[in-house]
C-alpha cells in the first residue's frame, strides 16, 4: 500500500510516498513478465531490455483503473482518493493529466480483466527494441501474443470488428506517454 494520506502530511512527504508507490508496482511488472509464455525463453539481456523500455507503459495500463474520469479523482494503492486539483498543487499535473486522458480512452473500450492482462503483455513485448540482441525472437513472441489477443477479443465480441484496431491504436499513445513523462523526477528520502 502507498501511504499517501491526511492533511497533516507535508507536500514533501506526499511526494516521497508517491515516488515510493512505483517500487512495488515495478516489481509486480517483472513478476508479470516472467509469467508471459515465452518471455523467459528470451535471453536475460533481452528480457531486461524489454522491461526497461516497457514497464512504464505497462504501469500506465495497470493504473488506468485508479483514475475516475468523471469525478477527476485518483485512488492510490492504499485506497485513499484525491481530487486531481489537490495532486496538481503538488506538481504532479502534467503526468496525471496525460494518465487521465489515456485512462478515459482505454476504459471506454470496456476490456475484461483477461483481455487487459493480455493487452499488457502485448504492450511489454512491443516496447522499444534498442539494445535487443535477438530481434527475431522478440518479434515472434509479439506476433503470438497479438494473435492471441485478437482471437480472445473476436471470440468474445464477434460483432465488434473495431475494438481490436482501436486497442492497437493505444500502443502509440503509450509510447508518447513514455517519451513525454518517464523523465519526471521522483524523490526518495535518504534516512
Amino acid at each position: 500500500a502507498c501511504p499517501v494520506s491526511g492533511v497533516d502530511r507535508t507536500s514533501q512527504e506526499i511526494w516521497e510516498s508517491f515516488s515510493q508507490c512505483f517500487t512495488p508496482a515495478v516489481k509486480e511488472v517483472v513478476e508479470f513478465a516472467k509469467g508471459i509464455p515465452g518471455f523467459q525463453d528470451l535471453s536475460q539481456q533481452d528480457q531486461v531490455m524489454l522491461l526497461k523500455s516497457g514497464t512504464f507503459q505497462v504501469l500506465m495500463v495497470r493504473f488506468c483503473t485508479l483514475f475516475n474520469a468523471e469525478e477527476r479523482t485518483v485512488t492510490f494503492l492504499n485506497g485513499q482518493t484525491y481530487p486531481l486539483s489537490t495532486l496538481r498543487a503538488l506538481g504532479m499535473g502534467s503526468l496525471l493529466d496525460a494518465m487521465f486522458d489515456f485512462s478515459e480512452k482505454l476504459s471506454s473500450l470496456g476490456l475484461e480483466p483477461d483481455e487487459m492482462a493480455l493487452f499488457m503483455a502485448v504492450v511489454l513485448v512491443s516496447a522499444d527494441r534498442s539494445g535487443i540482441s535477438n530481434m527475431w525472437a522478440v518479434e515472434q513472441l509479439q506476433e503470438g501474443l497479438i494473435r492471441a489477443l485478437r482471437s480472445l477479443i473476436s471470440r468474445r465480441r464477434p460483432d465488434d470488428t473495431t475494438l481490436f484496431p482501436k486497442l492497437l491504436l493505444r500502443l502509440p499513445d503509450l509510447r508518447t506517454l513514455n517519451n513525454l513523462h518517464s523523465d519526471k523526477l521522483l524523490a526518495f528520502r535518504i534516512d
Binding site: 512504464f56 518517464s182 526518495f188 528520502r189
Partner: peptide
C-alpha cells in the same frame, strides 16, 4: 533537513529491474 535521492521515473524503473535480475541470478 532531509536528504533526498532524486532520480527520473525511467531510472528508478531501470534500477529496480537490474536489482531484481541480479538478485535472482
Amino acid at each position: 533537513p532531509k536528504t533526498h535521492r532524486v532520480m527520473t521515473l525511467a531510472d528508478h524503473i531501470s534500477h529496480i529491474i537490474t536489482q531484481d535480475f541480479a538478485r535472482n541470478q
